Simulated assay, not measured.
Amino acid sequence: MYKLRGHHLFCLLGYRGMGYSEEYVKNMTLLHQTLRENPKTLVELVEGPDQLCAKFPNSGTYHCQDDNIYVRDAAILEKMGLRIGQVLSWEEIEACICNSVVPSDIQIVCETCSWRSYGVCEEGIREIHEGKGLRKVQ
């Protein structure tokens, strides 16, 4: 079972093999591939730093503890009708995305995210709506 915070549910949709460091990318890729290949994998929704934050590089500001990240986590969980402590399979999370999220929501709930300008998270949401699941990372 993986432990993930709210905004990382959206980050996984947009993940294309880029990240903050080699170690972070390796960790994110492994988690992403596991969920892609085994959508029945369980995910526990947590408050604060999670298994992806654990590999955030120790090179300056540790944004995983920033107040605005907690606000983003809460907004995403609320948008999806989910709560801290809940355990769901990745396929259940994808169903929640289909039922409660549209691509343009990224512009609002992820307004301050530095990755937003790439457009990959909106694309990921569209692909979930199309039944494609997580995109294969090259």
Rank of each mutant, 00 (worst) to 15 (best):
P49F: 11
Q138W: 00
W115Y: 11
L30R: 06
G14H: 08
L9I: 15
N68A: 04
L77E: 10
A54R: 08
A95H: 04
Q138V: 02
V87E: 12
G48M: 11
V43I: 15
S89P: 01
W115M: 03
V109N: 04
C11E: 08
V137E: 06
E22F: 01
L77K: 04
K79R: 12
C96W: 00
N68V: 01
E37P: 02
D105S: 03
G6M: 03
Y24T: 00
H63A: 07
Q107G: 08
I69W: 06
E111C: 11
E127W: 00
N68H: 15
Q65H: 09
S59F: 08
I93R: 01
G17L: 01
F10Q: 01
G124R: 05
I97G: 02
P49W: 14
K26N: 05
C64D: 06
Y118N: 13
A54G: 14
S104T: 12
H129W: 15
C121Y: 01
K136D: 04
M1K: 06
A75H: 05
V120S: 11
K55M: 14
V25A: 09
M28C: 08
Y70K: 13
K136E: 13
G131S: 14
I108Q: 07
A54F: 02
Q51R: 03
I108L: 05
D73K: 03
D66W: 07
L30C: 05
I125E: 03
V120L: 15
D67I: 11
Q33D: 15
V46L: 08
H8C: 10
N99V: 06
V46Q: 07
C98I: 04
Y70T: 04
E22N: 08
A95E: 14
T34A: 15
K26G: 00
F10H: 01
S100A: 15
L42Y: 06
S104Y: 05
M28W: 01
Q107H: 07
S100H: 15
L134Y: 06
L82Y: 00
P103E: 08
Q33H: 13
V109H: 05
G6F: 01
I93P: 02
L52T: 09
Q51V: 15
C98A: 12
C96N: 03
I125S: 01
W115P: 12
S100N: 14
L42D: 10
G131M: 07
E94W: 02
R116Y: 05
L45K: 08
E44A: 04
L77R: 13
C53P: 09
C110L: 13
R5M: 06
C96Y: 03
E37Y: 00
C98R: 15
L31A: 14
G85R: 09
V71E: 14
I125N: 02
H8K: 05
V46T: 10
Y62T: 11
R126A: 06
